[in-house]
């Protein structure tokens, strides 16, 4: 953390320190092969989601009914074509964006709601804690996907609505974890010490407690992204999510399921894409947890 106000006696020294810091992270990453795999998969996913249209060999929306249901490796269609003659590789590539956008924005929204609720419950305790945590308990007793379906059925389909329904179903996990972190933190001696120097309550929360729960939020968030991407695919598969003709892995599965017996490639490749994404995110999340965990940090 740079304070900006401070002039350092030896700026060269500081620079050397910073370099070693990024080197240290790289070293830690290279030491764990699961971390490397996860990181590479995430980078690939990000590249696909940003430059999808450029990379895709065909227009993902271009339906050539003449070429429908071509098996892989025919006529330049590496992964074949679907029931409308659209190139599956291109659709898988472009579909990455939907997953990334939904994964990221859901985790931001769910994380925000969950953190606010968790912090309030954990810091202020009392009846507000009881009320909020019972809401969380009730919500946790419903299956996640069912809840997402119910909320998106009420809100209607579409990208924004699927994000909202995923977040409304998913914030409880954040609230639980953050609350327990805050509960432990508020009893820490350095918080008492901060009160003893005359810091007001709200500032204690914002300046002294929040920065300390940043790491668990990041770790939990990175792991939850995988869950949300899979959930989006499931909901789209059930027809509530991203609507055709937009290419999304979930609705590709949905459309392809009718052809499962004679054209296996329709659902296999988007399925593999989902698996690889979830795998990458989870591997990376695990690595992040191992690296950032304050208990292990000193090692």
């Amino acid at each position: 953390m740079e304070t900006g106000t401070v002039t350092t006696a030896n700026p060269l020294n500081v620079k050397a320190k910073k370099e070693s810091k990024s080197k240290e992270i790289a070293r830690k990453l290279l030491r764990s092969w699961t971390g490397v795999i996860g990181f590479s998969l995430i980078i690939l996913l990000l590249i696909l989601s940003i430059f999808g249209e450029v990379i895709a060999p065909f227009d993902p929306m271009d339906a050539q009914l003449r070429d429908r249901l071509l098996p892989p490796l025919t006529d330049g269609h590496l992964l074949g074509t679907d029931q409308l003659g659209r190139d599956i590789l291109s659709r898988v590539i472009v579909g990455a964006r939907v997953s990334v956008v939904i994964g990221l924005s859901t985790v931001l929204l769910a994380g925000l709601i969950g953190t606010i609720v968790g912090v309030i419950a954990g810091y202020y305790r009392g009846w507000i804690d009881i009320v909020l945590m019972r809401i969380v308990d009730v919500q946790l007793s419903f299956p996640f996907i069912l809840l997402v379906l119910v909320i998106s059925a009420v809100l209607g389909a579409g990208l924004t609505n699927i994000v909202i329904s995923l977040a409304l179903a998913g914030w409880v996990i954040f609230a639980r974890v953050i609350r327990s972190e805050v509960l432990a933190l508020r009893e820490k001696e350095f918080i008492t010490a901060a009160i003893a120097t005359g810091v007001p309550k709200l500032q204690i929360l914002v300046r002294h407690i929040l920065p300390n729960i940043f790491t668990p939020i990041i770790i939990l968030g990175s792991l939850q992204i995988g869950t949300y991407i899979i959930a989006e695919a499931s909901v789209s598969f059930l027809g509530f999510g991203v609507q055709p003709p937009t290419a999304a892995w979930g609705n590709m599965l949905d459309e392809g399921k009718d052809y499962i017996f004679n054209s296996w490639w329709l659902i296999t490749f988007p399925g593999i894409a989902i698996i690889l994404t979830a795998l990458g995110v989870n591997l990376f999340g695990d690595w992040l947890r191992d690296t950032l965990d304050p208990e292990l940090k000193g090692e």
Binding site: M1, T3, T5, V6, E189, F190, G198, P211, N212
Partner: peptide
């Protein structure tokens, strides 16, 4: 009053300083 007219030094210097701040902060 706290931190101004009266201050307190705690028992455990290891746990009484918030780990996320620099000494200056």
């Amino acid at each position: 009053l706290r931190g101004n007219e009266m201050s307190m030094i705690f028992q455990e210097p290891m746990t009484s300083l918030n780990p996320v701040f620099t000494i200056g902060e």
